[in-house]
Write a protein that binds this DNA or RNA. Sequence first.
DNA 1: GGACGGAGTAAAAACGTTTTAGCTCGGAAC
DNA 2: GTTCCGAGCTAAAACGTTTTTACTCCGTCC
Lengths: 385, 385
Amino acid sequence: MSRNRLPQEEANGGTDAGQGSPARPTILDLAALCGVSPATVSNALAGKPNVKAQTRELVLRKAREIGYHASSTARGLRMGRSWSIGLVVGDIANPFVPDVVRGVEDVVWRERKNLILCNTDFQAEKKTAYVRSLLDKQIDGMIVLSQILDDQDMERVEAAGIPLVTVNRRAPGHSCDYVGIDNQAGVRMAMDYLVSLGHRRVGFIKGLFRSSSADDRLAAYLEAVAAHGLDSAPSLVVQGDYSIESGDSATRTMMAAAQRPTAIVAANDLMALGALGALHDLGIKVPSDVSVVGFDNIQLAEHPLLNLTTINHPKRETGDSAARLLLQRIAGDRGDPPRSVILKPSLIVRGTSAPPPAVAVAKPRRRGSSQAEKTQAEKNQTAGT
Amino acid sequence: MSRNRLPQEEANGGTDAGQGSPARPTILDLAALCGVSPATVSNALAGKPNVKAQTRELVLRKAREIGYHASSTARGLRMGRSWSIGLVVGDIANPFVPDVVRGVEDVVWRERKNLILCNTDFQAEKKTAYVRSLLDKQIDGMIVLSQILDDQDMERVEAAGIPLVTVNRRAPGHSCDYVGIDNQAGVRMAMDYLVSLGHRRVGFIKGLFRSSSADDRLAAYLEAVAAHGLDSAPSLVVQGDYSIESGDSATRTMMAAAQRPTAIVAANDLMALGALGALHDLGIKVPSDVSVVGFDNIQLAEHPLLNLTTINHPKRETGDSAARLLLQRIAGDRGDPPRSVILKPSLIVRGTSAPPPAVAVAKPRRRGSSQAEKTQAEKNQTAGT
DNA sequence: GGACGGAGTAAAAACGTTTTAGCTCGGAAC
DNA sequence: GTTCCGAGCTAAAACGTTTTTACTCCGTCC
């Protein structure tokens, strides 16, 4: 160490006549300034017990004076950590995502860790590259939202011993912590509710194939159709891709079929909003002609002009749980068996749902309860357009 | 280096009988494997010209074989960089923000840098802590969205020599790269358009005080009122805070006043949507009774049921420009004078704007031009509502 | 035949920490 | 008067790179 010669000749030379930035103080500077060794400074700042109170005080004071802050990079290299966690999302611009991110940030922030945001656009190549990059950075942990990593990426993460929490979509074959929602229960609530209103012919706009949550939601729809003995027809299930546009076109397809549904359940709110738009364009009244129920309860769903009946997905709590699980895993034993948090959905009745037009009711008429729901629903959406 | 003894006795010991993760290979392992020095490996991988083609090939092959990836941390320590940039936002859940983030991510991704997302909730303490953390991490650069840093934080960033780009809000007293929109032009377009429709009494829901863009938008409104000789009254300008709720309550306040406006311009779309909700609740027809114009053109503004006339803010392009500016600054000379990118707003006519009720027109009737505008506007919004 | 030069490689320093092992010194125990 | 011990500190190694400097050949030139 040629730097550490004389007390007054510190690492960052006395007069910084150079125009460049003055180079921030290192632990060596601080040690020299305090007249102790770097080890002692480190121990003092870390609160280790093997340093005299008086010395610790001196170090803390001087550190504050010169504005010393340890380099995360150096510390990370030595300790093999980075105090940052990777958050892999498909599309941050999807209104569902930022709310979850917000939940993650909130708890991660409490431990003063940083969030590295990786937007994959659902592209395999980008996903792989981001995972690589995160591993190279020695992240402390990783959260993957609404998508799965290929086996190779997964293996790399496991090999690196990096804790991983998956959200909304289980990685088949790999066991890791998971946070999701009870999709089946959610759709069942929507279906039961519609049936209680008197609907017998309910259409479903499903999400992308190959996503576990999409499968669950579709399965729950089919089960409900069977359980309640509802009308079933191929034209009542249309494929969407979670976008507004796909909800729009799916609805047009569905309404063009011979047997129109009296209610439509969409696998997410964006498609439900697309359905509302399409029905509006087609001159079909909501909810008097057709009811629409979404899934997620995104922020704008409660706007008086949209006023979407939907299944609430606790988004912020999702992010919160995922981050908690991850932090526990980081702090605690890596060997513990994987844990799952399955959040509860809930039905939010707003203005896009009502009993079907009278003619459609074939079964014996329901009593009060459905009537009450109806007036409630209609109240919510009076004066609509 | 006690590790580097024999060819077959590599750093990461042959048999990893231990249960822990096998510890990833270092450049020493790779060097031993190839029978060259770590320096040569480094040069080979970096594509330096001073290594024989044959050697380089060998190194690359072996590197791929054992899946060698350099540690960003070690490299960062040595090179004084981190290949990540800090993105400081106020609230990621605000629908305006993710689109900008998406733009940033897109260009940052091209250089394989990472994005560290800092959500400040507009809290001074969180802001300061995040900036500290970013500086400790030796980030390559920083983007601050729609907020300003206190002088002390600002000084720290400057002292560290970290390039900084501010977006939507200039830091008074500090000169750094800036990306924004021509707020005045935007509001002027909205006002001119409304005047051309025949409106003479236009209300304005302004944003938070102390934000430069809010000031600009308000100023433009006032100028337009003066320039066109429109009605002006204190009750026509109401304070909001950029949230839906504030737009709602501001509108109720405005409509409760003696002199109701025939049109409302809001400083952002969320408040405009709040206005739509309030008017809907109040039973006031949009646009026949009152026109509403927003600012930002958030994604859902184009939904057929909202169909909001608004000023487009090129969000993605904003993020794009900010990131570009930042990367240039990182790569190029730090000493260059600060640059600004001012994006152009544009008027998006949808269904929430129309001529005022006939009775409201007091001044002598405009000729053709306004009529032309009107038909144009109506053409744009046929099949609306 | 020796000096020169360039190509290719190696040795070692440096980046800024944390942590382990060891040192010193004063007092207590025997 | 040794020995032992603990408190408080220091020296040095280690983390895994990049980069500077130096070295070794080998062919070419004079």
